[in-house]
Simulated scan of single mutants.
Amino acid sequence: MNDELTFTIRLSATHRGARLARRLTVQQLLDWARPFETAEQLVAELANNAITHGRVPGRDFRLTLTLTPADTLRIEVTDARGDAMPREPGYGLLLVEALADAWGTRLGPPPTKTVWAELEASKPS
């Protein structure tokens, strides 16, 4: 039996879509009774990267939040530019590296790429 909780949504690859990703993250984590501040910052950065570096006109990006039974929150932002993998971390990915317990990228399915970050999401005491 899989006790993971998952939220996923496709959003327009625009500044409005990136803002909505951040707001939906906050709401979903409130619904799951989990802290949202760090996740909100991570989603803001990953969504902004998706609309800045991964945008293909007419294509959306996807936000997926997964909460595991071990209270790990996995944030995934998938964009339509599998050919544009992050090479040298700029300020945004340095921020992701500082805030996340782990992060990385993966290709596919073509033509997409996903940038993901994980962090502990224990219930507040």
Rank of each mutant, 00 (worst) to 15 (best):
V43P: 06
E97S: 08
T14Y: 06
T38E: 13
R22G: 09
W32V: 01
T68I: 04
V115P: 07
T64I: 04
I9E: 10
T6D: 14
K113N: 05
V43F: 02
L99W: 08
T72P: 00
W32H: 01
D3P: 11
L99A: 12
L11T: 03
H53Q: 09
S122Q: 15
G17Y: 07
L11Y: 01
F61N: 03
R81M: 07
T68V: 08
P69Q: 06
V96A: 12
M1C: 12
Q41G: 05
A100R: 02
W103V: 09
L63Q: 08
L30E: 10
P86E: 03
F61W: 06
T78E: 14
N2F: 06
L63I: 04
D31P: 00
T66Q: 13
L65W: 03
L42Y: 00
W103M: 03
W116R: 12
T8S: 14
V43T: 04
D83V: 04
D101F: 09
M85E: 07
T52L: 10
E4L: 10
T114D: 07
T6R: 15
A102K: 08
A100E: 00
A39Y: 12
T112A: 14
R19D: 10
A98V: 10
L63D: 05
R59H: 14
V56E: 13
G82M: 05
A117N: 02
A47F: 05
L63G: 08
I75Q: 01
P35V: 03
R22M: 00
D79R: 00
E76F: 03
L42H: 09
R34G: 07
G17A: 14
L46Y: 02
G82Y: 11
N48V: 12
A47E: 10
L5A: 14
L30P: 06
A70K: 14
M1Y: 09
G90S: 02
R19K: 13
R22W: 01
R59V: 04
G92W: 03
R74N: 08
P57E: 07
R81V: 13
T52A: 00
G82I: 06
P35K: 05
V26W: 03
L73N: 06
P69T: 04
L94M: 11
V77Q: 01
L30S: 13
L20P: 06
L107F: 00
E76Y: 01
L5D: 12
G90I: 06
E37M: 12
L30F: 12
A50C: 02
R16Y: 15
L93A: 04
G58H: 01
W32M: 01
E45Q: 14
E88P: 03
R74T: 14
D71Y: 14
D71G: 00
D31E: 10
I75R: 04
P35T: 09
A13M: 03
A21D: 01
L11N: 00
A121R: 01
A33I: 06
R10I: 10
L73F: 10
K123S: 13
P35Y: 06
T64V: 13
L11E: 02
T25P: 09
T6P: 15
E97H: 09
E45H: 08
L29N: 05
I51M: 13
E97R: 13
S125P: 15
P124D: 03
P86M: 01
Q27T: 15
P109K: 07
